[in-house]
Design a protein around this nucleic acid. Structure first.
Length: 675
RNA sequence: GCCACUGUAGCUCAGCGGUAGAGCAGCGGUUUCGUAAACCGCAGGUCCUGGGUUCAAGUCCCAGCAGUGGCUCCA
């Protein structure tokens, strides 16, 4: 598994009303730097399987080579940062400092809290050092000498890494630290390499630029706390993040992309488009959905319900409170009781707000005797669960305390599992198709090194994981597998999407579970008259409705396709005397019977405010309303509307009937935004 | 929960020891307009909350609350 995300020249950007596209960040070859295999010490003794190995690069201009060069530059920039910090604060201790997508970071232990002022100072120092044309000198040391040297320099974290390297070899260290920058020669760890930049010496695999002057444009961005080796029991270091690109232009372009990402941030658009709000009195992580936001939710829920109906799903309803006993039996209690909202009844009974629905659904299964003839049973509902997330984790609609799920549980014969998973996959495909969203597929496996985090035997886990793998293969899917991401009761197929700031969020999920049926002793009567154990599938299509809304708002930058737009058309009368005709147009649109519209026809409004026509158009534009229908004397006389799209395109006047045919078709087919 | 930063009008922000400001939005009036901002006027603020320093605190200090970016977590 890769432990460092190699930098790559692409930045994903969503464009409104279109398939997600990849926008190329322009990378120019830039100044010639040490990329040739025969050049300088900095590329010496690089292992041939190293992804950054220049020997593997087919040509100096290839994208792979550009990537490798950027990666090297970013990595060297991290060292430059450390060198600068070291010069300013000689007592600083260093953790790990890898290259990451778009830049680098370095973890530093230092008494002085690093704020913006300090970042400025550090950045200035970095520029100073860069200009000194410091060579990046590689040297190799026997590991015991290395430990002694780092101990002499009081670099306790480096000593810790070296000792781990010595004992375990590099792979284990890389996996644990997320840093791949240390090298062991061969399987053991007899020798390690160092890089010297000015006075600063760092344990590092390399490769690096030959000279600091080869580092392109960089900018320190932020500082954050990060636990040493990712473990919250360890001390927290200060992690300084920076951007690094080949040229000033590239850096500037990237900063502009970040600004664009901010503009499409759902938290900002949610306020501007009046979709949802937060209230200090209600509390953090508890979004309030306005009429417009609620309409979008209802449309999404309606869509998914319609898709699953042909697959035999039936609706159920459960209370949002339960006795704790339910979760004690399910096995959740031990693991999650601290993350539940607890409620006390009058008589002192202990309840909690439900953090999930599966245990309740098992009780619907169990409420009467089931026959193999009844299976599969597919219980579904759109309902909320409540989780007491740590405050620092909350984030707009992406991470909330009341999560609305389009949840369902399928109880079936073990031999029906694959077919049911395929049906769920069908629903997911059908649902996501109109959005043109790029979803990544992940098979979430258990972590066999931590079996106590999970219920069930190793054999059971391996078998269920293989069952999901079979589904993915049959589907022709491309997926990644990740250990430790499974639910405690079983493996999952997870579908994730990225938000405007490039953070991944889980949306749809298919989870296989042989554990809960056992814990709740669920049985059906098999053909032989004996009780048998059903299998259970958990699934969600949108995942969390709130999170899905967040991703969707950013995906479309707020410009929803017509079928999802809270207001689909604004009629703009040119002067007051056209208000009456405008009202007629709206009445006609609203009276239509349109599929996928939740009743009420086309959602149209008159803008009869006392503004100029231009201002009304601007207002509709800012609200990202797909259609503006301008009506003046000519349109009123001829029963027409002058159609303008939010793209700015003017479709000119057309008979109202023609517009109706157009918009109705778009809504009913859930087609994407008009161009 | 941890680290850093931020909190001034509905929104975006300026002011950074000495009488609270702008643009947009809102309200009132004038204008009735052909595809992204007509004009004039009015109103609007315990400067997040609570303590402290000071003759004087949006402004400095402390604590809390909330938000932002990370870390940890994410059934």
């Amino acid at each position: 598994m890769d432990t460092i995300e190699a930098p790559h020249p692409f930045c994903q950007l969503f464009v409104p009303g279109a398939l997600a596209v990849q926008v190329r960040v322009h990378l120019r070859p830039g100044p010639v730097i040490s990329s040739a295999p025969h050049e300088g010490a900095n590329t010496m003794s690089v292992r041939s399987e190293d992804p950054a190995d220049p020997q593997k690069a087919p040509s100096p201009e290839s994208p792979e080579e550009l990537e490798a060069r950027l990666f090297r530059m970013r990595h060297s920039c991290a060292h430059l940062l450390a060198a600068a910090v070291s010069a300013l604060w000689p007592q600083a201790k260093f953790g790990v400092g890898p290259a990451i997508k778009f830049g680098f970071y370095y973890d530093i232990e230092l008494e002085t809290p690093l704020g913006p002022k300090e970042l400025d100072r550090i950045e200035q120092k970095m520029r100073e050092l860069r200009k000194k044309k410091l060579p990046y000198e590689r040297q190799e040391l026997p590991i015991d000498d290395a430990i002694a040297e780092m101990a002499r320099r009081n670099q306790t974290y480096k000593v810790e890494l070296l000792k781990l390297l010595k004992d375990k070899g590099s792979t284990a260290v890389a996996a644990e630290t997320g840093d791949d920058s240390v090298v062991s020669e061969g399987g053991g760890a007899a020798t390690v390499s160092f890089y010297k930049t000015g006075e600063f010496v760092d344990l590092c695999r390399g490769p690096h630029v030959a000279n600091s002057i080869e580092i392109g444009a960089f900018k320190l961005t932020t500082v954050a706390g990060a636990y040493w080796r990712g473990d919250e029991r360890n001390p927290q270091l200060q992690r300084v993040y920076g951007l690094c690109f080949a040229s000033e232009d590239d850096l500037k372009r990237h900063i502009e992309l970040l600004e664009e990402a901010k503009r499409r941030d759902h938290r900002r658009l949610g306020v501007e488009l009046d979709l949802f709000a937060f209230s200090d009195l209600v509390g953090p992580g508890l979004p309030l959905f306005t009429p417009k936001g609620t309409l979008v939710r209802r449309l999404l829920e309606d869509f998914v319900q319609g898709l699953q109906e042909p697959h035999g799903y039936t609706r159920v309803a459960i209370p949002h409170l339960t006795k704790n006993d339910l979760y004690k039996v399910s096995g959740h209690w031990d693991k999650f009781q601290d993350d539940l909202f607890h409620v006390r009844g009058k008589g002192g009974e202990e309840f909690c707000m439900k953090p999930m629905n599966c245990p309740h659904h098992t009780q619907i299964f169990a409420c009467r005797q089931r026959s193999y003839r009844d299976l599969p049973l597919r219980f579904s509902e759109v309902t909320s669960v409540y989780r007491d997330e740590v405050p620092g984790a909350l984030q707009g609609l992406s991470r909330v305390r009341m999560i609305t799920q389009d949840d369902a549980h399928v109880f079936c014969l073990p031999e029906q599992v694959e077919d049911e998973a395929m049906r769920i996959y069908d629903i997911i495909d059908g649902f996501y198709r109109p959005f043109g969203m790029q979803l990544a597929v992940r098979l979430s496996l258990w972590d066999e090194k931590k079996p106590d985090k999970y219920l069930g035997t190793k054999d059971r886990w391996e078998a269920t994981q293989e069952a999901l793998r079979a589904v993915l293969r049959k589907r022709g899917a491309t997926w990644v597998e990740e250990a430790g991401e499974a639910a405690f009761y079983g493996p999952k197929i997870d579908f994730t999407a990225k938000d405007a700031l490039d953070r991944s969020w889980q949306l749809a999920t298919i989870q296989l579970d042989f554990t809960l049926p056992e814990r709740f002793n669920l049985t059906y009567i098999a053909p032989d008259g004996q009780p048998a154990r059903p299998a259970m599938l958990h699934r969600a299509i949108l995942g969390s409705v709130e999170r899905f809304m967040a991703v969707l708002i950013e995906h479309y930058a707020g410009a929803f396709p017509v079928w999802l737009s809270p207001v689909q058309a604004v009629v703009v009368p040119i002067a007051d005397r056209h208000n009456e005709y405008a009202a007629q147009v709206v009445a006609t649109l609203k009276a239509l019977a349109v599929k996928n519209a939740l009743g009420g026809g086309i959602r149209a409004e008159v803008d009869d405010s006392r503004e100029s026509m231009q201002k009304k158009i601007r207002n509709a534009q800012l609200q990202k309303i797909p259609y503006m229908l301008v009506v003046g004397d000519r349109e009123a006389a001829e029963g027409q509307v002058a159609v303008r799209l939010r793209s700015g395109a003017d479709l000119k006047a057309m008979p109202l009937a023609q517009f109706i045919a157009r918009i109705t078709h778009e809504v009913e087919t859930r087609s994407d935004t008009p161009a």
